[in-house]
Design a protein around this nucleic acid. Sequence first.
DNA 1: GAGCTAGTAG
DNA 2: CTACTAGCTC
Lengths: 260, 260
Amino acid sequence: MKVATWNVNSIRIRTGHVIDWLSQNRVDVLCIQETKVVDTEFPRALFEELGYHLYTSGQKSYNGVAIASCQPLKDVSCSFYDVLSNLDPEWDEQKRIITGSIDNVRIVNLYVPNGSSIGSEKYNYKLRWLTVLREYLKSLLVTSPSICMCGDFNIALEDRDIHEGAIAVNQIMASVPERQALRDVLSLGFSDVFRKFTSESGQYSWWDYRAAAFRRNLGWRIDHHYLTPDLYERAKSCSIDVTPRKLTQPSDHAPVVVEF
Amino acid sequence: MKVATWNVNSIRIRTGHVIDWLSQNRVDVLCIQETKVVDTEFPRALFEELGYHLYTSGQKSYNGVAIASCQPLKDVSCSFYDVLSNLDPEWDEQKRIITGSIDNVRIVNLYVPNGSSIGSEKYNYKLRWLTVLREYLKSLLVTSPSICMCGDFNIALEDRDIHEGAIAVNQIMASVPERQALRDVLSLGFSDVFRKFTSESGQYSWWDYRAAAFRRNLGWRIDHHYLTPDLYERAKSCSIDVTPRKLTQPSDHAPVVVEF
DNA sequence: GAGCTAGTAG
DNA sequence: CTACTAGCTC
């Protein structure tokens, strides 16, 4: 099974790129982030014409996630509250999670908050959001032991996930508390499958639009697949497809594909 | 001599269209309206590479006029006040006029206020602006008897200048006071040279972006060349070039070319 | 409908 | 730099 993750930075602007990519790369599941549209505005028909079932959880302007899947998904949910009934439902206001099952694998598609800048209100929200995610996954694992959690984590776990120029600068997406919050999540039993196959630096999934960052490969690897041990063992490959980032009007992120 | 007028609705957006059109239609003079940029932002170099001298009078966001001319212009002015020294200089704040001489012809390039809606403050401004223009031309004629006044007048002088559906509706660009104010200007000795060659309706220079107005030819002829009698007599043709309006991301106006 | 400003977000 | 909002203009 091939599962891809791609922050498209507006599905409205990127419909063409995404449909073209899906036609050329017929993955079983595509997890999309930053759709930036309410569900009624999502260009469903084009995905369905390609034979994909589509599940969306969007809002106006910001965030928004979706899953396109060749097979229909079971038990689709867009809510932390569905699993954590004691949770303040405010945690579901921002549309950052969508999940569903295919065979015995639970796909969890995430758009982790960016956090703006270290110490800001948004930064604290990001850290608290990650603790909510941890509780959520802890409960989920009880009934769903095989999980493929992927998406835009807005965190580079290690220095090798960042281009040289940004290492050692204590900045957003690389601060110690963010990395620790993500490691606390992963300690439930998840592993970064990209690192099963590639140990060197230099491969990234996001490049700032500014300063010609892509041309100079000044990127970050912040889009990940975290797998439970069974899936991690089965995994055959995990790679970043840089080609769509080279098109005109690209997303700032590239798709990442895992096969297990 | 060929003199064209074209409201480009943002020179930034339309640079490609305008440069392409000028390459194919090497008019002696191109009068441009609604450039919407300050002079330092105007893409001068591209015009100069085509061999044109460029004269601009722009402001941020709104209005803005320019002249591109194969020969250098003499006595360029962007100001009513230059001729009407008793005028309140506030009339020069909106960049709506640029003028210069070539041979013995004075080119006056105008962007007449739109007027928003009948009876509004902007409407009254439009009517008063036309009385200022009349005084301006009266003085100008003393030293410059040969004038080619062109631009976006935002007025359809006669019913045959408007598509069927809008005739008889007392609306902006066709109201009696606007037409009268323009006729008062023309009474100084100007004639609409387009009507020397074409008496029928059905040819327009502006189509609203909305409601597929261009496809249905629901247009208005509001971009004009008004000539003094000597030039009017010499005039050999006057035609509207609809082709640029068919391109993608077009201006809502088409260029109009007179030859005299 | 398609320009523009400003501000926000990333 | 490239998305988004809202309000403005034409």
